[in-house]
């Protein structure tokens, strides 16, 4: 039972006084944010409505100590739908600021910097959508150097910095390059004999799919089920996480086509991920054309949580495009 002393009116006032926290009390708990929330699809414990409601009751300890207050990635999918016009990610930030002041820390995961390889070039600080990375003088092997430093409380583990880092110094606890490549090749998929020897005429496709651009958990599971000798789906935190090197590696191993699927521009969960992901594919297409590879074989597609079966449509479209290519255009790389 929640006791009266746990309901701290001062906590409510502190949130209201914090920039972004002003509209806390106008929430009437309709649940639109909770049912919209994309984070919640992967982290069912996260419920923005409940956090706002608990905060409105003044449950200081329960709110500040919960891991969920750090889960909001400020994608703002809920904001335009809120009938009370509450900027929920702003309220979350206000609550987090109070938590940081009270000595709490975000549970992570967060991007990590390998101090030895970081050159301090600052590409990552510019790429980070959350301004979570700054350059700081740090002691590395007894020497003071200005290198990247990640604020765990701000990092949302999107992986954009990992993909952006030219020296391979950034890594993500959950999705580093090694793990990503393992997933691509899982079960010896790329080495399957039938595949390389052309036992089947069907084109073989590899898809990198942003986890936010597909609908719900069960659709996700269905996608995994689609994996067979003709299709491999790799889920990424963001289409901005895609690395051209991985795509080229797959093509060199005999994959016919690669699909990169991200959110619609403007709906990216990490704000700039679609822009980065699409840009990388566009650049790669140009490079492919320059070296005589058919650029149609790698494509970027956009989808959203509102679209059902978008992935299947995109895969079918890529299959068709590849089927339309002359066999020579494909065998160039296979051979």
């Amino acid at each position: 039972m929640i006791r009266p002393e746990q309901m701290d009116r001062r906590f409510v006032e502190e949130i209201l006084a914090e920039p972004g926290g002003e509209h806390l009390l106008t929430c009437w708990s309709c649940g639109t944010c909770a049912a919209t929330c994309l984070v919640r699809r992967f982290n069912p414990a996260f419920n923005p409505r409940l956090i706002l409601h608990k905060a409105g009751l003044g449950l200081r300890e329960a709110v500040l100590s919960s891991a969920e207050i750090w889960a909001c990635s400020a994608c703002d999918a809920c904001y335009p739908r809120c009938p009370q016009g509450i900027h929920i990610s702003d309220v979350m930030r206000a609550i987090r600021n109070l938590a940081i002041r009270a000595g709490y820390e975000a549970p992570g995961p967060a991007a990590q910097v390998d101090a030895a390889t970081c050159s301090g070039c600052a590409v990552c600080t510019r790429a980070c959508p959350y301004a979570a990375i700054e350059r700081k003088p740090q002691m590395v092997n007894g020497q003071e150097r200005t290198i990247a430093w990640v604020d765990r409380n701000l990092c949302q583990a999107c992986g954009i910095c990992v993909a952006a880092c030219p020296s391979g110094a950034m890594s993500l606890e959950a999705m580093n390059d090694a793990e990503l490549l393992t997933r691509v090749a899982a079960g010896g998929w790329l080495e399957q004999p039938g595949f390389l020897q052309g036992a089947s005429d069907a084109p073989r496709l590899l898809a990198f799919v942003c986890q936010w651009s597909i609908r719900a958990e069960e659709e996700w599971e269905r996608l995994q089920g689609l994996n067979d000798e003709h299709l491999r789906v790799v889920i990424l935190p963001c289409s901005g996480r895609v690395e051209p090197a991985h795509v080229l590696l797959a093509l060199s191993k005999g994959v016919d086509g690669v699909l990169v699927m991200g959110c619609h521009e403007g709906e990216c969960h990490y704000q700039r991920g679609t822009y980065l992901g699409r840009g990388k594919v566009a650049l790669l297409n140009e490079m492919m054309a320059a070296v005589g590879l058919a650029p149609q074989r790698v494509r970027f597609a956009e989808s959203s949580a509102l679209e059902r079966r978008a992935f299947e449509r995109q895969v079918a479209a890529l299959r068709e495009a590849i089927a339309a290519l002359r066999p020579a255009e494909i065998s160039e790389v296979r051979g």
Binding site: T32, A34, T36, N47, L50, C78, A216, R309
Partner: peptide, 27 residues
Amino acid sequence: GRPAQITEDPETGNLFIEVEDQDLGQV
């Protein structure tokens, strides 16, 4: 609960309503 979105299965025309059931706290 106030529905957050309706999506349509383009094949059947059926609608999927996503909503947080406030009483359950579940979507």
